[in-house]
Write a protein that binds this DNA or RNA. Structure first.
Lengths: 213, 213
DNA sequence: CCTACCGATCGGTAGG
DNA sequence: CCTACCGATCGGTAGG
């Protein structure tokens, strides 16, 4: 017949496309991710690439899914075994910093979610909805972890978990910019200082005291 | 000869192009800002649009310049008359929030600088350099204002001005996302709460005290 | 400032 | 999974 591959081979090809797609989209955005570029990079035809998805939008959604899976693997899962509450929150924070600092192979252009959020925040459609869903999910998880930390007495009783999660999001966008736009080596340490203030374990302080400058 | 216009008319046309360019780029990004789209929107020919700039890159730089001028007018200038230090810092913060909340005519897709930063942070070239220069300039101004506030005794003596300016940047990116992606009405108030904590006037507090919840 | 054009690339389809 | 194609749009140029 034709050079049609087995189901397993086709799945593996689809994986390769999506992995490459994450890297391209990290640099060029999900709109800048083009079928022609993918085809060239992978030594395939455009029709061969598109055949796995049907439309560019489906390709974008698959790329976002793969990126979210990587993020879970690098940020959420390593913290899973930490004690719920402040210890796990701290573990998530560190994994998040490491993800932004070192996941350059997977995300050579920086955090794909920040890129996608900016790119789609003024549009409608399934991609925008998927991006918003991810940010909401992650904020909910962070806020939940803050809530546990408060209940455990690790954070002040009047802490607003949503507020803390919101501010954490800002710190990570700042860190992403600092790494990508300025290649600033002190950025992770700045982020840690800000997080220490945000997640200060107790109210009996006149300043932070648990980390040296 | 031809429908060539006077110098003043040509300048006015250029202004119209650049103003429209800011609005388009706010939604589509500086790469998504196309000459054809501008021409259609303005009822001109593509060559007529491009003639004012020569290349797309020059158009992008002119668009960024115009956006920076608007930003100065809306954020820096209103605070100019406030007392240097914490009062001026607070005035800048409020103007900044207002800018993100209400400048929808000029920036229908949200803060163009955040968009441009994300879009160009993985590329080289004059546009990237111009974006980086703007962010550096504004951070320097913020840090300078923090320094004045510390010298005036309005902020604790161990305040790190660069750190505060860095965190403020993160808060504004978070606010931009919250407005654009989530249309969250409580976002400005969240930002104010975070800024109050960041710019807490004195260390003799167990928690923030100058704003009611 | 226009018309008329260029080669390149876009997303996508037909047919195998 | 391929070749071969489609109409639309991209940035840019020639010439007036």
């Amino acid at each position: 017949m034709s050079p049609r591959k087995s189901v397993a081979e086709a799945r593996r090809t689809r994986e390769r496309i999506v992995e490459r797609g994450v890297a391209i989209a990290s640099v060029e955005g999900l709109e800048g991710l083009t079928i022609g570029r993918l085809a060239t990079d992978l030594g395939m035809s455009k029709a061969g690439v598109l055949g796995h998805f049907g439309t560019k939008q489906t390709l974008q959604l698959a790329t976002l899914d793969e990126a979210a899976a990587v993020f879970s693997r690098l940020v959420w899962e390593p913290a899973r075994d930490a004690q719920p509450g402040l210890p796990r929150l701290r573990a998530i924070c560190e994994a998040w910093i490491t993800y932004l600092e070192t996941a350059r192979d997977t995300f050579p252009g920086g955090c794909l979610f920040t890129t996608a959020s900016i790119e789609f925040d003024a549009r409608d459609g399934l991609v925008r909805d998927a991006v918003a869903r991810l940010f909401r999910l992650w904020r909910r998880r962070l806020a939940g972890e803050v809530r546990v930390a408060v209940a455990a007495g690790d954070l002040p009783g009047d802490t607003d978990p949503e507020q803390v999660a919101y501010e954490m999001g800002g710190l990570y966008m700042a860190l992403n910019q600092e790494i990508q736009l300025f290649a600033a080596p002190e950025a992770p340490e700045r982020t840690r200082r800000a997080l220490d203030r945000l997640l200060a374990p107790r109210q009996d302080r006149q300043d932070r005291q648990d980390r040296p400058a």
